[in-house]
Design a protein around this nucleic acid. Structure first.
Lengths: 340, 340
DNA sequence: ATGAAAGCGCTAACAT
DNA sequence: ATGTTAGCGCTTTCAT
C-alpha cells in the first residue's frame, strides 16, 4: 500500500499531538508526571501509527544492550544446544536476550566473533573455547573492553574469567574404574587435542586411574585427534590391524565412540564381549544405538544455567569464580557385559 | 588494573592527536582525503587506546544493522540446526550477522521474539512457524515495519512473505507408494497438527496416495498430535491395543517414528516384518538405530541457503517468491523387508 | 504537567 | 587535508 520507508519515531507522535518528544517518551514509560489524558492519547496515537521503539537508539543512550553473547563450537551437539537452553532460561528470567554464535571449532572465526561482539553488541559473553584455539588474546581482550566473560566446559587458565566446568578428571577416572570392575585391563584411550582443557583433563584421569591399578598404558594405547565420528572409524581401523587388541576403548567423545563401535561391529568384533567401548557427553543417541553406549553425563543444561547466573552476577559487579560440577557415569550395554 | 569504565570513542583519539572526530573517523575508514601521516597516527593511537568502533552507534546512524534474525522452533532438531548452517553460510558471505532465536513451538514466545526483532534489531527475518501458532498478525506486522520476511519449511498462505519449502505432499506420496511396493496395505498415519503447513501437506499426500490405490483410510488410521518421541510411544500403545493392527505406520516426524518403533519392539512386535515404520526429516539418528529408519530427506541446509539468498535479494528490493524443493525418500531397514 | 536542550558515538554534508 | 555541524532516536536534566 503505502511507501513510507522511514520508521515512525516519538517525534512523529509528538507532532501529531502537538506536544514534545520528551512528553511522548515519558508517557510511553508511564512516567508519574504525565497526565492520564496525555498518556492515553499518546498510547492511542502510538498504536495507530504502529510505533515501535528503536532498540538501537535506546541501547546507544543507555550504553548497554541487555544482551549476552554465547559463543560455542557448534549447536549440533546436544551438549551445546542444551547448555544454550540453560543459558536462555536464566537470561530471559531477567530480561536479557541471548545472541548465539558458532565458532565451528575455528580460531579465526572465534576471533572474528569475539571481536564483533566486543563492539557494543553484548554486555557480557559466555563461551566454550574452539578446539582450533590455543592462543587466547581475543578472550582477554574482551575483559579489557569491560565485557565480563564466563567460560563453560572448555576453558583456559590463561584467561582471567569465571568458569563452569565438570570434573572431567574424575569423570574419566570413574570410567576406567568401571571398566576395571568389568574385568577390562587393556584399556585404550582416544583423547582429543591436549590443549583443550576437557580433553586434557580426561586424559589425565585415564592415566591416573590406569596407574593406580598398576598399569602403564603403552604408547600405542592412546590416540589423539579430532572428535568426529569419522575419526572414530579411522581409529577402529588402526585397532583392527593391531596384533594385540584392547579389551576396552574409552573415547573422549560420544561421536568418536560411535564411529569406532560401528566400525568394529562392521568388522565382526563383538561389542562389548571382545572390546568394550565408552564415550563421553551422554548424547541422546547413546541410548538409541545398539549396543547402547556407556557415557558420562555432563549436565549441560545445568552448566548453562550456572554460567548464565554467574555472568549476570558479574554484570552486577560480583567477582569471577570457578565452579566445578560432578559428572555422572551412565552405564549401558557397550561396557556392561563381562568379557568372555 | 585500571578502572576506566567508559569506552574509548573517536573523540578520545581526536583529543589525543589534537584533531577532530571527523578526521579520525575518516582516517579509520581510509578515506582518500586524509594524509598518509594522519592515517598512520590515528591507527597507531587507536590501537594503543584499544579503540573499538561502537556498532550500536553505527547502526543507529546508518538505520540498518547488517543482521538477519532467524526464528526457529528449536535448535535441537538437526533439521533446524542444519538450516541455520545454510543461512549462516550465505549471510556471512556478504557480511551479515545472524541472530538465532528459538520459539520453542510457543506462540507467545514467537510473538515476543518477532516483536523484539522488529524494534530495529535486524534488517530482515527468516522464520519457520511454531506449532503453537495459528494466528499470524505478528508475522504480517513485520512486513508492516518494513522488515522483509522469508519463511522456510513451515509457512502460511496468510502471511505475505517469500518462502522456501519442500514438496511435503509429494514426499508423503512417495512414502506411501514405497510402502505399497513393499506389500503394505493397512498403512496408518501419525499426522501433526493440521494448521501446520508441512504436516497438513503430508497428510494430504498420504490420503491422496492411499485413495489412488483404492484404499480409504479408516477414521482410526490417522493420529494427530505433537511430534515428540513420547507422542510416538503413546501412539504405539494405542496401536498395540487394536484388534486389527496396521502393517505400516507413516509418521510425519522422525521422533514420533522413533518412539513408536521402539515401543512396538519393546512389546514384541517385529519391525518391519509385522509393522513397517517410516519417519520424515532424515535426522542423523535414523541411520544409527536398529532397525534403521526409512525417512524423507528435506535438504535442510539447502533450504537455509535458499532462504538466506532470497532474504538478501529482498533486502535489495527484489520481490518475494516461493521456492519448492524436491524431497528424497531414503529407504532403510524399517520398511524394507517384505511382510512375512 | 510539559518543553527545551544536551548528549550517547558515529557519519557525512558542508565549510574552510 | 581537515574542521564544524547536524542528526540518527531516545532519555533525562533542567527549566518553566
Amino acid at each position: 500500500m503505502e511507501k513510507k520507508r522511514r520508521k515512525v519515531s516519538i517525534y512523529d507522535i509528538a507532532k501529531a499531538l502537538n506536544t514534545s518528544g520528551a512528553t511522548v517518551s515519558r508517557a510511553l514509560h508511564d512516567h508519574s508526571s504525565i497526565s492520564i489524558e496525555m498518556k492515553e492519547m499518546v498510547r492511542k496515537v502510538a498504536k495507530e501509527m504502529n510505533y515501535r521503539p528503536n532498540t538501537v537508539a535506546i541501547n546507544l543512550k543507555r550504553g548497554k544492550c541487555n544482551t549476552i553473547g554465547v559463543v560455542v563450537p557448534n549447536i549440533h551437539r546436544n551438549f551445546f544446544s542444551s547448555a544454550i537452553d540453560g543459558i536462555e532460561e536464566e537470561a530471559y528470567k531477567i530480561g536479557y536476550d541471548v545472541l548465539i554464535c558458532q565458532s565451528r571449532e575455528s580460531y579465526e572465526r572465534e576471533k572474528k566473533i569475539l571481536n564483533s561482539l566486543s563492539r557494543g553488541k553484548v554486555d557480557g559473553v559466555i563461551a566454550s573455547i574452539a578446539s582450533g584455539t590455543s592462543e587466547y588474546s581475543h578472550y582477554t581482550a574482551l575483559e579489557d573492553c569491560g565485557i565480563p566473560l564466563v567460560l563453560f566446559d572448555r576453558m583456559s587458565d590463561r584467561v582471567n574469567a569465571g568458569s563452569v566446568t565438570i570434573d572431567d578428571f574424575r569423570g574419566a577416572y570413574h570410567v576406567v574404574e568401571h571398566l576395571f570392575e568389568q574385568g577390562r585391563r587393556r584399556i585404550f584411550h582416544y583423547a582429543g587435542f591436549q590443549h583443550v582443557s576437557v580433553w586434557y583433563n580426561r586424559y589425565r584421569g585415564y592415566m591416573q586411574a590406569m596407574q593406580s591399578h598398576g598399569i602403564e598404558p603403552g604408547e600405542d594405547w592412546v590416540f589423539i585427534g579430532d572428535t568426529s565420528e569419522q575419526a572414530g572409524v579411522m581409529m577402529a581401523r588402526q585397532v583392527l590391524k593391531m596384533k594385540q587388541r584392547p579389551d576396552a576403548i574409552f573415547c573422549t567423545s560420544d561421536f568418536v565412540a560411535l564411529g569406532c563401535m560401528l566400525e568394529l561391529i562392521r568388522n565382526g568384533v563383538r561389542v562389548p564381549d571382545e572390546i568394550a567401548v565408552c564415550g563421553f557427553a551422554d548424547e541422546p543417541m547413546d541410548a538409541l544405538i545398539s549396543p547402547s553406549l556407556t557415557s558420562v553425563n555432563q549436565f549441560s543444561k545445568k552448566m548453562g544455567q550456572q554460567a548464565a547466573r554467574m555472568l549476570i552476577d558479574r554484570l552486577n559487579g560480583e567477582p569471577a569464580v570457578n565452579i566445578m560440577l560432578e559428572p555422572e557415569l551412565i552405564i549401558r550395554d557397550s561396557t556392561l557385559a563381562k568379557k568372555s
